[in-house]
Nucleic acid binder design. Sequence first.
DNA 1: ACAGTTTCCCGTAAATGC
DNA 2: TGCATTTACGGGAAACTG
Lengths: 409, 409
Amino acid sequence: EKQPCMPAQPQRPLIIKTGVQFTTKVRLLVKLPEVDYQLKVKTTFDKDLPPGRVRQFYILTSNTKAMDIEDFSNGCLSVEFRHLQLKEKKYINGTKGNEALLSVTEELHSLSFEANFTVQGLTIDLETCSLPLVVISNVCQLPGGWASVLWYNLLTDEPRNLAFFGNPPRASWKQLSEVLSWQFSTLAGRGLNKDQLGMLEEKIFGQHVSCSDRQVSWSKFSKENIQGKNFTFWMWLDSILELIKRHLLPVWNENYIMGFVSKGMERALLKDREPGTFLLRFSESHLGGITFTWVQHSDNGEVQLNSVEPYTKNRLSAVPFADVIRDYKVISDGVVPENPLKFLYPDIPKDEAFGSLYNSQRSKVFPYLPFTLIPVSEIQFDKQLSLVFDIGTLELVSYHLFTCSRKLK
Amino acid sequence: EKQPCMPAQPQRPLIIKTGVQFTTKVRLLVKLPEVDYQLKVKTTFDKDLPPGRVRQFYILTSNTKAMDIEDFSNGCLSVEFRHLQLKEKKYINGTKGNEALLSVTEELHSLSFEANFTVQGLTIDLETCSLPLVVISNVCQLPGGWASVLWYNLLTDEPRNLAFFGNPPRASWKQLSEVLSWQFSTLAGRGLNKDQLGMLEEKIFGQHVSCSDRQVSWSKFSKENIQGKNFTFWMWLDSILELIKRHLLPVWNENYIMGFVSKGMERALLKDREPGTFLLRFSESHLGGITFTWVQHSDNGEVQLNSVEPYTKNRLSAVPFADVIRDYKVISDGVVPENPLKFLYPDIPKDEAFGSLYNSQRSKVFPYLPFTLIPVSEIQFDKQLSLVFDIGTLELVSYHLFTCSRKLK
DNA sequence: ACAGTTTCCCGTAAATGC
DNA sequence: TGCATTTACGGGAAACTG
């Protein structure tokens, strides 16, 4: 007889990478009347999974271990498997059909544990298994894996529905937005506010008028690309989470990153502000990018908004973001480089906001002269020209450029 | 009977990393009278190596394969082993003594090949083996490995002296300097000239007067740290080779990097030159660093030399070196940032030399404003003060600084 | 040809051994 | 404890494979 009476703890990791070690632990919650012999537990990956539909994996390393009395507890029996490693079963006879068209991160797998013993002439089989697991072969598949874990946890309480992604349910925006906000708060201690979530809602549903509580399909969330882009909604959001984790934690936690702002909203917010007012916003066109947009007034009083080319993780590992804000310069008329960033929206003086976050790591390597990398934008000739055509003062500006180029030499 | 009549070709790789695949090939040079059966070759690593003295490795993957007629040749038999992989033999009983105090990159190993066949009732054993091989477990051991390969090739013609580093011979400077120059020319197509080699000679022997042709010990070359540094001569030189390979190839090949110049020589060369004359030199204090030193005249006509903090591979992957030269700025009096680099020694205008090497990759990501990272050095307050004490104009300069700080705001 | 997926392996960091 | 060496694995790129 089979008794599912051995509650398992191995709810983590939920994503396992082949060839990378993981650890799992099972505990026996009932006290056995007699345990005068070693109670061995065997762990199996993809047990009872019919071959053909999905990839199958097995545990490359030793998979059987005896239970032991837990150190710090009420004498429970438990066993911890360490250094477990997964490898894919390769079928010579191409039985792998995969008509279901599931991507690898939609395949759900599981880890089973079995033990059996005889008490009073009765053989008892214990068995339990983990929550569904996603198996990946490269870290570049992690975002896809997290999408699946998120969707599963959000939309079902079933402990082991491995066919979940065969026909995944929709999520209401209310449910989803809570989970998305939670992604940010667990990462960084600060979730998303109403305005930020509003921008995400608009992004996922399009700019229609918001009706009560719309449904998001799994496909919309993580399979279809965003209109006009070559990445999905979740890929985009996850790339931002990674950027925050790696490069923007303090700035994010201080609430200095508005982040999710549509271009229209950005203009509405900035246009009546003091010149030099800026806000920080994540790029919508590039994965994992952050930019700043500032307002300035042209000579004839016209309001202009400028955004810098988005900073990605590569750039930010050369120059920390707070320092970028401190040091950024624009050479707009070719004479004196100036930092256009003065006030963080709505009106906080830049240094007041970011002062404590600057890294002034002057590396004292006598006798060398230390240097700092300073990001500089130059208003280019061709760009100026197009500007000029707009405002109809071609000759004047050309002349100006000519004198500039002399001064630069 | 054993006949060493199967000349082997596997002289490469000379350094093998455990767990990383390598390939080797053997060819049979004699024509066999009858080959009506498959001639199998077995390859063995560390065959006949007595256990105890050094680490021992074995071939993890399949090590036997049948010879075949070579595709494009005179019907020679040959066999190529692919996907070979090495793993260390672990001895439970700690037989590994290693009293010899050899480091892992001084241990020499070998790859053996065996085949046997019967012809006219006579059993013939063929056997051959590779040149000595160094086995490493991490790429951070590569420089040590190359040092060994270089020293072995330079100083012996023996095909299989695995005890070579038990008592390694010395090299004459003449021999060594040729090989060092050759390292640069194979890497980049340009070797070292007499002046550069002279600096290296001085570095390895100290600043004594040069006698005819001194001997360099293996220890001096690659085991003892350079006086006052925490790296060896070869580690330092190899870090420079890597820097050139990864970031400086065009500049090196154009002969714009003087590179190996003592500080004394640098001063002698630059002091009578036009202000703004600079040269490029590898850092002697940091591994894999390059710096530029320029001459300028202070207001009272005194000659000053300045060097920028060395650029290492990390910095150079954020800003290409030619662009650094183009863009570098110094804010020396707080007013206008200026590029102090005008003429490449002796008198080549900077843009004439480097113009074709600049990367003006203006990333057109409309509507964003692209930026360039510009390295800027600022003559700091405390440094200025110490300067001031030197030339005795404290009050004047302090006043100057005060007005500067106003202008900067 | 191509996209989805896996393998390969450098290079950094952490763990291990001596 | 400290140094030498190995192991672990993220991340970019190449190789694979239907």
